[in-house]
Amino acid sequence: MNLLTVFLQQAGGGDYSFLIMMVAIFAIMYFFMIRPQNKKQKEIANFRKNLEVGQSVITAGGIYGKIKEIEDNAAIVEIASGVKIKVDKNSIYADAQATQTK
């Protein structure tokens, strides 16, 4: 017996408990999974939009550094004295240690 058959049998009988249960499961998934993920993505996008020269960052590969220059879709990050790499903005994250010390 598939899910559609069960739903039609219960809906046809006037018992809406299955429908209510499905709505409740979707609401729980929305508030505990979808909504927090969307909020986190907006925070990351806002952080990347407001990057500043001299800010400590971490790349997606786990490289710590400071921003030296900012271009349209990339940033120049200094990872050691005199060692600079060009990194796409989409792979830059906030340095947790730098944000905790402020």
Score class of each variant (00 low, 15 high):
D72R: 10
T99M: 15
T5C: 05
I67A: 05
K102M: 13
M21C: 01
T99E: 15
Q100G: 01
K49Y: 06
D15F: 11
Y93K: 09
G54V: 07
K68P: 00
E69L: 12
S81P: 03
S81I: 06
F26G: 11
I92P: 02
T101H: 06
Q97F: 14
E78K: 09
D95Q: 11
A80E: 15
N50E: 15
F7E: 07
N46E: 12
A24D: 06
L8N: 14
I67W: 03
F26C: 13
F7K: 07
F26N: 09
A11W: 10
N2I: 06
A45G: 01
K86W: 02
V23S: 09
I58G: 00
A75R: 02
I76F: 07
I85Q: 11
G54Q: 09
L8G: 00
F32K: 08
I34F: 12
E52D: 08
G82T: 11
I70L: 08
F26L: 15
A27G: 08
K102S: 10
F47K: 04
A60M: 09
G82L: 14
L8Y: 06
A24Q: 06
V57W: 02
G82S: 15
G82F: 13
R48E: 04
E43H: 00
A98L: 10
V53K: 14
V77G: 05
E78R: 11
I76N: 05
S56I: 03
A80P: 00
E52L: 12
I20E: 13
K40Y: 03
G61D: 15
A80C: 03
E52C: 06
Q10L: 14
F26H: 05
T99A: 13
E52F: 05
Q9K: 13
A74G: 00
M1K: 07
M22Q: 13
A74H: 08
N90G: 04
A75L: 02
T101C: 03
F18T: 04
S91Y: 08
F47E: 06
P36Q: 11
G82W: 10
D88H: 11
L4P: 00
G65P: 03
Q9W: 07
S81R: 08
G62R: 06
A74K: 05
V53N: 07
N90S: 10
K89A: 01
K84S: 06
D15W: 11
G62P: 01
K86H: 04
R48M: 03
N38R: 09
F32E: 06
I28N: 04
M22E: 11
V6E: 15
I44G: 02
K86T: 14
K49D: 13
G54L: 09
I85N: 09
L4C: 04
Q97G: 09
K89C: 01
I79S: 09
I92Y: 02
A80S: 15
A75Q: 02
T59V: 02
I85D: 04
A11N: 12
V87W: 00
I28V: 12
T101K: 15
G61P: 00
A74R: 07
R35Q: 14
K39Y: 07
N46A: 08
L19K: 01
Y93S: 10
M22H: 00
V87I: 15
T101S: 13
S56C: 05
I70R: 01
